[in-house]
């Protein structure tokens, strides 16, 4: 067990260090997210009586699009540099590699979210930093990373590569997006966690279900 966690940590730490030195993913994700906020601002500003009606959608769509951008890169550099083969040759459990990759993707998206939440508050003049909202965002992002990491590994081995990723990912991810947007709009108008327990349960169920399926299937995705 200890060894397993060491592998997870090693993969996670490697990704963090690579990202810290290149800042490739984070920069593109963050800039993209800001662009999305700006575009949404122009798309909706003129005809909405209350900003809180659009902010949940803006937040989740910006996160989803920025996240898919980062996920797309998760395995591309590994593949192109040949380091994926190295990872797979290591005598370790493949699911530990999955978990490490998943956690690094999860962390990257969380960091981007930490970056855009204050911006959203400023641009749209709506306080989005609410504990219950952060919780639902956290849980939704976990499901996003859980499924996204597997699909990213799928997409990198196809001819279409990152073009295919959103097409594969978004239809599967839809329940999380719907639940997240609904719960977020509730929390913005002052609802409590208990008011949206069904949405939270749905996201938690999604997270658990797809983490388990990902654990079971990741082996087949990276098998050569």
């Amino acid at each position: 067990m200890k060894r397993y966690l060491q592998v997870v940590w090693a993969v996670l730490w490697k990704d963090m260090r690579v990202e810290w030195r290149t800042k490739d993913s984070f920069t593109s994700m963050a800039v993209f997210a800001v662009l999305a906020l700006l575009i949404f601002n122009f798309a909706f500003e003129l005809n909405v009586p209350d900003k809180r009606m659009v902010v949940p959608g803006v937040l989740w769509v910006a996160v989803a699009f920025a996240g898919v951008l980062g996920l797309g890169r998760a395995f591309i550099t590994e593949k192109d540099q040949g380091s994926l083969a190295g990872l797979l040759l290591a005598p370790v459990d493949r699911s530990a590699i999955y978990l490490g990759k998943m956690l690094s993707n999860f962390l990257f998206i969380l960091i981007v979210e930490a970056f855009i939440l204050p911006l959203l508050t400023i641009f749209f003049n709506v306080t989005v930093i609410i504990p219950s909202l952060l919780l639902v965002l956290f849980l939704g992002t976990l499901g996003f990373a859980a499924v996204g990491t597997v699909f990213s590994a799928l997409a990198v081995n196809t001819r279409a590569r990152e073009v295919l990723l959103p097409v594969l990912l978004f239809p599967v991810l839809l329940p999380v997006l719907i639940a997240g947007i609904r719960a977020t709009s509730g929390f913005l108008v002052g609802d409590t966690l208990a008011d949206h327990a069904n949405w939270l349960r749905l996201i938690i169920f999604f997270d658990i279900l797809f983490l388990v399926v990902a654990f079971l299937t990741f082996d087949y995705v990276v098998e050569e």
Binding site: L154, L168, V172, L174, F210, Y220
Partner: peptide, 19 residues
Amino acid sequence: FASVYGIFAFLSVPLTFMS
């Protein structure tokens, strides 16, 4: 790959419907 995606896709349908 198609098998892996086929499993994910099918399992997500009831959740989509519920949501």
